[in-house]
């Protein structure tokens, strides 16, 4: 819905009941499964190094974005709120990657 700046015309009522409790239970089930996978792969012998790190980061991002988009309803909010949050998120990531790179502290032990 409101991914463009057409958010100007979006009113609150439109998104109120996009999801039902049944949907929320399904999303929670999905999150639980992802968590289980996360924990499980750390115990698989041989599944380590860059592969494990990448998998864990990707799974973490999936969980993070699922909660933000559906439980926090950000997917259904106007552009302004999406902009603020994701701008802050990307900004924080960029800044701290830069800081940690300057300490050479990001890629040495993963």
């Amino acid at each position: 819905m409101a991914t463009e700046s057409t958010a100007v015309e979006t009113t609150e009522e439109e998104h109120a009941d996009h999801l039902s409790p049944a949907n929320y239970w399904m999303i929670a089930l999905f999150l639980a499964i992802v968590t289980a996978v996360e924990v499980a792969i750390t115990y698989i012998p041989g599944y380590d190094g860059a592969l494990l790190v990448t998998s864990l980061i990707v799974l973490g991002i999936v969980k993070f974005l699922t909660v933000v988009a559906f439980f926090m309803h950000l997917k259904y909010e106007p552009f302004t709120m999406n902009f603020m949050f994701y701008f802050g998120l990307l900004g924080a990531l960029a800044l701290f990657i830069a800081v940690l790179l300057s300490f050479r502290a990001l890629f040495d032990t993963f």
Binding site: A7, V8, E9, T10, T11, E12, L74, E77, P78, T80, M81, M84, F85, F87, G88, L89, G91, A92, L93, L95, F96
Partner: peptide, 24 residues
Amino acid sequence: SGGLDIRKTAMWSFLASELMFFGA
């Protein structure tokens, strides 16, 4: 001003700020 909910706008800007806090 575009049907933005006042309190939610405030909350999201606060949460964006909190992202920086936990990022640090």
